[in-house]
């Protein structure tokens, strides 16, 4: 099998923020309904759609929806390099960054290292309402409390596609035969998936589009998730303007709000948990 480089192109201008990708991902990967008390920080969303805006107030405000998942970094994969248990690996045959919960010790170094905050920790045992466990996907094992998990481009589907290819007497997976659940579910066709090494694939073509961009590209992690938007202000979000300051290419506009979730997500000074509240100064801490 020739080496693939699976990736996605997400057309932000087509995403209506319906959340079908999030729900389809949870169904496919046996992610349980939220435990009582789970909030945006402790919930598990392998793909999460963020609502972003241009920083202006009504009626000048314009919004867009940006799905963020594991970016499947190709170079210097931060999570893989910090894992003490080798529970994270980058498959050279597919380019997929995988996570092995059986090996995970739950140290969460990878969560701290991931600049996209696309990793989630299991704070609770997985519990489904009585009877609903019958609807679990047989191809994916539920994970226990205390391990980290993340998007793996629906590994179960990759295995199924490999088996189908083998049954057909070939090693090559045909384009379209392997599609992650979020891509399949997207009603607007905003998310596309394919082999970035295949120049003929729609994903590879979309990645080369003039309006294409990647999140935090300056970090040099070579993400395989490409976004596309014709709107300047959407593209600028990807380069993580500092909270409360106008972007260098956005002089004269209203400073972006610290409450903007994606700005908070991508802001360089963030800790591993998203929060818009200012950190206490040493003096405040001392005086409690």
């Amino acid at each position: 099998m020739s080496a693939k480089k699976y990736g996605m192109s997400i057309d932000v201008d087509r995403c209506n923020g319906c959340g079908a990708c999030m729900v389809a991902c949870a169904v496919e990967n046996n992610i349980p309904p939220a435990h009582a008390g789970i909030n945006e920080r402790k919930g598990i969303t392998w793909i999460r759609v963020y609502k972003v805006d241009n920083g202006e107030d009504y009626p000048g405000k314009r919004s867009a929806f940006v799905p963020v998942l594991c970016q499947h970094c190709g170079e210097h994969t931060p999570c893989a390099s910090v894992c003490p248990q080798q529970a994270v690996d980058v498959d050279p045959q597919t380019g997929i960054v995988g996570q092995m919960p059986e090996r995970c010790l739950g140290c969460r170094y990878c969560m701290a290292a991931c600049p996209y905050h696309a990793r989630y920790f299991n704070w609770f045992d997985p519990v489904w309402p009585a009877g609903m466990e019958k609807t679990l996907n047989p191809d994916v094992a539920p994970r226990m409390r205390g391990v980290v998990e993340k998007c793996n481009f629906c590994h179960g589907r990759l295995h199924a596609a490999k088996q189908r290819a083998a049954a057909a007497g070939t090693e090559e997976i045909q384009p379209g035969d392997y599609v992650p659940a979020c891509v399949e579910a997207c009603p607007t066709g905003a998310i596309r998936f394919g082999d970035l090494n295949d120049a003929a694939s729609e994903t590879a073509k979309a990645a080369k589009d003039a309006n294409s961009f990647r999140l935090l590209e300056k970090l040099g992690t070579d993400p395989k998730i490409y976004y596309r938007s014709k709107k300047d202000w959407v593209r600028q979000i990807a380069s993580a303007p500092k909270v409360g300051q106008p972007h260098e290419n956005n002089v004269g506009r209203t400073p972006r709000s610290a409450r903007d979730p994606l700005v908070a997500l991508l802001a360089p000074a963030r800790s591993s948990a998203p929060s818009s509240a200012p950190l206490p100064t040493r003096k405040e801490t001392l005086h409690g």
Partner: peptide, 15 residues
Amino acid sequence: SSPLLSQIYQESNLR
């Protein structure tokens, strides 16, 4: 609606 819709209500406040 499915309890799994907590994904878009509770865990992300998307809707």
